[in-house]
């Protein structure tokens, strides 16, 4: 069963104008037999692995900077995961936090598109030598 079923979480970047409703309808219109469930952050798409892969490629093609995706272990609506059953599971806070960071990641993808190179990492400041700290402390005294 694991091999067959794939559930995909699509998350829309907070600075995007794409709406969950719009995304869900787009996927639905692709007509690949993939079930779609709209969520507050985007949507869940569920179907055979091959069909979901096609949907993913198409969504990435249309919204490269707006929509991000990962697999989800639980099928859509699974009571083991459902918020209504027990309250939020711990991974919810994780998703919330990652969602907030997506706009920054979009900027990174734009930089990739412009063919930029990363700046060399800044040298770590290192600790203040103890002798120096001692001098400062003594000066204040």
């Amino acid at each position: 069963m694991s091999e067959d079923r794939e559930t995909r979480l699509f998350m829309i970047s907070p600075d995007s104008t794409v709406t969950p409703d719009q995304l869900a309808r787009e996927i639905h219109a692709m007509g690949r037999g993939v079930a779609v469930k709209e969520t507050c952050y985007g949507c869940l798409a569920e179907g055979s692995r091959a069909a979901v892969a096609e949907v993913l490629a198409e969504v990435r093609g249309r919204h490269p900077l707006d929509v991000f995706s990962k697999r989800r272990a639980y099928p859509a609506g699974d009571p083991r995961r459902c918020r209504a059953q027990h309250g939020t599971r711990p991974g919810y806070a994780q998703l919330e936090a990652e969602w907030a960071a997506l706009a920054m990641i979009s900027r990174g993808l734009e930089a990739c598109g412009r063919g930029e190179s990363p700046r060399p990492p800044a040298e770590p400041a290192g600790g203040l030598p103890v002798e120096k700290f001692k001098e400062i402390a003594e000066a204040i005294r």
Binding site: A101, G108, P118, R119
Partner: peptide, 16 residues
């Protein structure tokens, strides 16, 4: 990344 600049660098490095 804490800033957009850092995010750009992070994504560029991951891509590279």
């Amino acid at each position: 990344p804490e800033t957009e600049e850092e995010a750009e660098d992070a994504v560029l490095r991951i891509k590279g």
